[in-house]
Design a protein around this nucleic acid. Structure first.
Lengths: 344, 344
DNA sequence: TTACAATGATTTAACGATAAATTTTTTCAA
DNA sequence: TTGAAAAAATTTATCGTTAAATCATTGTAA
């Protein structure tokens, strides 16, 4: 007990004299004592650690995830929180696994790009605070951090239009993803605003991978062969765009001279493709940091989602809307966009 | 107790009847009981979790780290181990932090590319098993997984020589790193074997970043201006190579027509530069998996480094050499190498 | 019937740290 | 010198789980 007070600063009523204090410190030094975090956690009912659940694709390095993770690690280091990464392969298949992770090893969880059903949402343990990032479903009883997908898509398509493009392909993400739907909406809004008719033939949905980008653009060029020939491609992610670039290269189309290409995300990928991609920056790192900030507040009980309304005399009532934050995107101009080529 | 036996399979002498068993299961279901991993860990003195310490550069995404981490996550999922990532910014400055991580929250540690002094090595807690990957120092009382840096460098430089190159720049890594020294040695061995005199003027040491690659190649071209003009560059990493490619592009040198470039690592980077890099593949993922395998054996006491020699009658004595495994590299041929250009 | 398994249920102690309560010792004013 | 407050030291109970021991049934063979 004395040791606990001296070395770990336990807040007991125990008092200890200078002499004893010194003796304890000395003994601890000699034995190179180190507090057992597990026992400490059990006693305090707080492990000072947070969990991150993410579907890291085992087959391919997931840059998207890593940028967010870096933000999380950064911020949790500041708060002296230990970060545990729970890696799953599929949100649907691994539901049981996710529940298992909530075993009081961590005090709260950050879910990166979860893909939930409302039923599963119900099953999440009530005592664990959750923060979601890039969720495809607005989680109940959780704090959601999202990005303005619609606005981001709108702004980059608008940028293409401002450069003179009017025939713009969209290599979309899987259309069961809310994110993908919003990006498509942004694309359509920009077109509508410029009085460009929406042509479903120019939109093709694949998945988030460069392989998919490659095959979709190839199908577009070789099978669909839209007329008049498009002068730009809006890809739903940088990864898709990188595959798209390969496909265009194979088709002997130069970027941006013959055709312009833009991505979405601004991961490392966008900087190292050739040409580097004009894209929409998602503030992954910032969101990761914010996720930790919010989660810690939830753990400390400073944010209570179950109690959306505060006593009326408190001024600004924290309402249910606060359980969601939307981050703005930013247009990043690089070299993959040029003016449209005159008709071939 | 009964619940513990029924639900968690505790190996107590406690016996439970069919009826009680059913009642417990039902109650657990109703309460959606989930074992408290912390209490379990305290009692069993095993958390079923491993820690990974890595210096993730906060400023830039670290692909190198991620590939290894993916292997680790993959394998630890197989063994139902929880993986905690401890991120530090500097191995020297954060020594205290590293010691703090050994707080029995994890049963063992994997160190990715640690940079240790012998004194610090001494301070590592004896009760925690350590496995190092890509260490720049052979850790005592730990299991070291390394890659054949010398051989890898040798093979790729030899490949350049076989293509006809004789004037080969080496953009080296920081020379306080064992790894960098070994790669330089491999470079020299390949040259020596082909009777090419070593020219210190062609070697320039920077650090592992594309910025450094850019500035080193630029200095080489604009300041040192070696004669006869080199026809190839051996970069100590893919990241360096990517910067080098930029520098060459700026200098209006085409790769591989005017000059060939090779890297080391075969991270994602090597696949997406333009042209894609011929490089040396490090089996990151495999090493990550192996690290977990070894660590788990150490935790279970199946590998005991303190006891390198087994009783003589046991056949193959596990000797101290077993505390180290060296992985072979593999040459990956892509598009960044061509025959040397005739003298300009 | 007694004895003795076999079976089921309950209790105790431990993991290491902590909070609070209790006991012991010291200090100092009356 | 006494006595009460202050300081120091010690004890007890708890966190949730587990291992082993003890206790209480039941059934079965002699």
């Amino acid at each position: 007990m004395t040791a606990s007070v001296v070395l770990n600063g336990a807040t007991s009523s125990t008092r200890v004299s200078q002499a004893t204090h010194a003796r304890v410190v000395e003994a601890a030094e000699k034995l190179s004592y180190r507090r057992n975090a597990v026992a400490h956690g059990l006693s305090r009912r707080r492990m000072e650690s947070i969990g991150v659940v993410a579907a890291i694709d085992f087959g391919e390095v997931n840059l998207y995830f890593l940028e967010g993770l870096n933000g999380i690690l950064e911020e949790s280091a500041v708060h002296e929180q230990i970060t545990t990464v729970y890696s799953i392969s599929d949100w649907q298949k691994d539901e049981q696994k996710i529940l298992q992770f909530c075993d009081s090893r961590v005090d709260g969880m950050i879910l990166i790009a979860p893909y939930f059903t409302a039923e599963f949402n119900e099953k999440l343990p009530k005592h664990t605070p959750f923060v979601s990032m890039h969720s495809n479903y607005i989680l109940q009883n959780s704090y959601n951090l999202s990005v303005d997908n619609e606005g981001g898509a709108y702004s980059i398509v608008r940028h293409l239009i401002e450069q003179g493009h009017r025939r713009i392909i969209h290599l979309a993400a899987p259309d069961n993803l809310l994110e993908a739907q919003l990006r498509l909406q942004g694309y359509r809004r920009a077109l509508a605003e410029a009085n460009i008719a929406y042509d479903a033939n120019l939109v093709i949905a694949g998945e988030y991978s460069s392989r998919s980008g490659y095959s979709c653009i190839t199908e577009m060029l070789q099978v669909r062969m839209p007329q008049p020939f498009p002068t730009a491609v809006f890809c739903a992610s940088d990864t898709i765009a990188s595959g798209c670039l390969d496909g265009l290269y194979n088709a002997n189309l130069r970027v941006p001279e013959d055709i312009s290409v833009v991505g979405f995300d601004d991961t490392l990928m966008a900087r190292i493709t050739s040409p580097p991609l004009t894209t929409v920056r998602q503030p992954f790192r910032k969101m990761g940091r914010r996720a930790v900030e919010v989660l810690i507040k939830m753990i400390r009980g400073e944010i209570d989602l179950a109690q959306p309304e505060q006593p009326s005399d408190r001024g600004t009532p924290a309402d249910a809307e606060n359980a969601m934050e939307i981050f703005q995107t930013e247009l990043v101009l690089r070299k993959s966009v040029g003016p449209p080529k005159r008709e071939v």
